[in-house]
Amino acid sequence: MTPHTEPRSRRERPAKPALSRAGILAAAMEIMRAEGLPKVTMRRLAQELDTGPASLYVYVANTAELHAAILDELLGTLAAPAEGGWHERLEALLTEYTTVLFAHPALARSALVARPSGPHYLGLIETLLTLLAQGGVPDRQAAWGVDVLLQYATATAAEHATRGETADTRDEWDALTRALHGAEERTHPRTAALAAELLSGTPQQRLSWGLRVQIAGVLHTPAPQSTEGATS
């Protein structure tokens, strides 16, 4: 016979830790590592913290802001190499940023529309601006260039993340390969001639080359002078 157990009163239960933005972010990171970013919702987080979703909105405005905060936390691991020229150090830092997003596919897509604004993101911007300044890039070009460089790196990671999560990725790639190699010389002469080159290179080679193109463009393309503020 099972002995009767009296329910514990609330006074006897351990007190829940007080909510804080840092605590919420820590719990969100744990959920992401265990279940993936799509599971990091305000409802799931409230369940993990044994509270109501409404309590979380005091600290985090919405899920998009929460995901941006997670990315900011991950950016705390980034650091530019101490050795090498400014070109090499800049490329290495952007490659490391892209690699972080490669490791978290859903976060890569989220980063396209929800940029972080925390201390680690600001630190990344400061480092990028410092490296561009070391390369003699004028201030306005550097300021605009940071946006271009991060957009390219983020979009590259998001594209590869989407490919990696698609079940039909291999079939889609095979279809593209057949289409390019099957291009008619009469109607698409350049495509037919360069079909192999269009498909050549490893993802790492293409990322490295693309970053160098972007960096060279920032260095050699003057930004238009304007008194208008940012539109978004």
Rank of each mutant, 00 (worst) to 15 (best):
L176S: 04
R10F: 04
N62K: 08
G135M: 09
A34I: 03
A133Q: 10
H87K: 15
G36E: 04
A158Q: 09
G210L: 07
I24T: 01
A64W: 01
L198H: 13
L19E: 04
L180S: 04
A114F: 05
P38T: 03
E83M: 01
T191C: 03
G164S: 06
L93R: 15
V146H: 09
L149R: 04
T166H: 13
A114I: 02
L94I: 11
P81W: 12
A193W: 05
T41W: 06
A193G: 03
F102R: 15
L19S: 05
E197D: 10
T191A: 05
A15H: 02
M32C: 10
S20D: 03
D171L: 15
Q205C: 01
G76V: 10
T63C: 05
R44Q: 12
P222S: 03
R33I: 00
A18V: 13
L49Y: 07
W173H: 06
A111H: 06
R33Y: 01
L207S: 09
A179D: 00
E159D: 10
R206Y: 01
T154K: 05
P119S: 12
M42G: 01
H4S: 12
T154V: 05
E83R: 13
I125V: 15
G23C: 05
S117K: 04
L131I: 11
H120M: 03
I24V: 12
K16D: 00
P119V: 12
G118V: 10
Q151P: 00
M1Q: 13
T156L: 13
A114L: 01
S117M: 07
L211D: 11
G182H: 07
R163A: 09
T99Y: 08
S208C: 00
P53L: 11
E185L: 10
I125N: 05
A103T: 06
I31F: 05
T51L: 07
L71V: 05
R11F: 03
H87Q: 15
L49T: 01
L176E: 00
P81Y: 12
P17A: 11
R212S: 10
R206N: 08
R10C: 00
P7W: 10
A230T: 07
E185F: 11
N62I: 06
W144Q: 14
L132K: 03
M1R: 14
A192D: 04
L131S: 07
T156W: 13
T156M: 13
T166E: 04
L49P: 09
G36K: 07
S20H: 11
A223I: 02
T77S: 15
E96N: 09
T5H: 10
E73P: 02
T77Q: 15
L71H: 02
E35R: 11
L112F: 11
I215K: 12
P7C: 02
V213D: 12
T166P: 00
L112C: 14
T169G: 00
L219P: 01
R10Q: 03
G145M: 11
L207Y: 12
A133K: 09
E197H: 08
E184Q: 14
E165W: 01
L94G: 08
E88P: 00
G135S: 11
A167G: 12
Y152T: 02
A111I: 07
P138L: 09
V213E: 15
T63I: 10
E48M: 07
D147Q: 10
L66P: 03
A82H: 13
G76Y: 08
E6L: 15
L128T: 13
Q225R: 14
A143V: 12
